[in-house]
Design a protein around this nucleic acid. Structure first.
Lengths: 246, 246
DNA sequence: CAGCTCATGTGAACGGCTTTTACATGAGCC
DNA sequence: GGCTCATGTAAAAGCCGTTCACATGAGCTG
């Protein structure tokens, strides 16, 4: 492999090697630590061992660095949602809920990305590339909603997939941003953010007439993957989507 | 008129009169305009016509000004939610939805407050007074959820009110923060944020087994306030909570 | 009214940040 | 070896937050 060339460029490199990447990594750490508002360009430069002016060779200004991080964040976000969706396997509802959990997991595990993407206040629509990346991520949710909507029980009006996608997104974002991160996460909750979102989505899907007769925390041994039966019977699962107050 | 007395009491202030209030107002305007992150202490001072050091006679630092605004925001928020809830009149479900709309209306009409309260990244739990104000506001939603939970149709497990409250809050916050404010609001949506949230809440409530057979924009003449019928029949209202693509 | 006191406001100063500009350096190519 | 250009530095301007010594004048006391 071309390790040699890499080593000569990256490590032995002239002034720094790959300052751009170093700055992105440094910024990522700083944002995770102090939030997008607290992060400073100068700090990132210091952390990379260069002067305060050096970053301007790679980013027009501080905002462009932030945008780059958000962009990367949306790409990773999309990748994780795609993996979670897994093209609707083993069944649409299960996969759909997995997407919800992946959303929360991303918010929790990648606070810096999430912060840059959703809480930094940078104008997403000002940067076309950023907006496109954001849309690609959303499209995963949208595609999943599309598949779900197609499964709407017969006899019920088919819900618009776009609306469902927006609803799910707002739930996931609401839970993530209110209860799953930073200081706000310290509110004492009767259940974990994951359980909260899962119950919320299940109740919502039930409201649309979908069969959701699995109990969330129960690691049920996967019964026949979505027998496409009508299920328009009672619609009320025996346990309710919220866990027992253990 | 009581000009005199007013002058002596309110403007009892020395040089400026009531700089504290002036600073709060100035900050409010600046935050609405440029966001909590963009707002500067010096700018507020300038706007009030005093030196950059003057504000420190009234606020320990910039963060304390922000906290004061958030505090005030929570108080107004609570007042508006209380008015919207109107103790559950004319019926619980209608009042509940009105609370949701009030939430969005506040986010839209008071961007500065909303920003300081939920998007400024200030540690709510670090300031006891702030946390208390925040809790008082949430308690309105909680109380409404309590009343709603008590109406749960017989034969279905009663949903925990706290969970319902958290769900509703996350929906409202999610919609507000993704679609109803600032730059993100420019995403092209198939429906208004208000309609989006209303449909979301209706579907959710239906998922819990509540009768929600009113079409959102229809000003139905209030049939017997919440007829406690089973409703576990089909559970699927004729119209669906989403509007026709008019 | 004289004078004291203390809350309130000012000006100057420090350090830090962002951004620009002129200059330095060294990598890659001939 | 020498050229060129990308990459990094130093210095400076301008802004902000914050502090401190000092100024001012409102209201009380006598």
């Amino acid at each position: 492999m071309s390790w040699r060339k890499e080593t000569r460029r990256a490590e032995r490199g002239y002034h720094h090697g790959n300052l751009k990447e170093a700055l992105l990594q440094a910024a990522l750490g700083l944002i995770a630590e102090k939030g997008a508002a607290g992060f400073t360009f100068a700090d990132a430069a210091r952390m990379a061992g260069v002067s305060a002016a050096a970053p301007y060779r790679h980013f027009r200004d501080r905002d462009e660095l932030l945008s780059s991080i958000a962009q990367r964040g949306f790409e990773q976000f999309e990748a994780r949602l795609t993996a979670a969706w897994d093209d609707g396997r083993p069944d649409t509802v299960t996969a759909f809920e997995r997407v919800g959990r992946a959303y929360l997991a991303f918010a929790r595990e990648e606070p810096a990305f999430y912060n840059a993407m959703f809480e930094s206040g940078l104008p997403v629509d000002a940067n076309p590339a950023l907006q496109a990346a954001s849309e690609r991520a959303f499209n995963i949710i949208r595609a999943a909603a599309e598949r779900l909507a197609a499964l709407a029980p017969p006899g019920t009006p088919r819900p618009p997939a776009m609306m469902m996608a927006l609803h799910i997104w707002s739930m996931a974002h609401g839970v993530a941003s209110l209860f799953s991160r930073g200081d706000a996460a310290r509110r004492k909750l009767p259940m974990s953010p994951d359980e909260l979102l899962e119950a919320e989505v299940l109740i919502y899907l039930r409201g649309l007439g979908f069969p959701t007769d699995r109990r969330p925390p129960a690691k049920s041994a996967e019964p026949p993957p979505v027998p496409p039966e009508a299920s328009s019977g009672s619609g009320v699962p025996p346990g309710g989507p919220w866990g027992k107050p253990k």
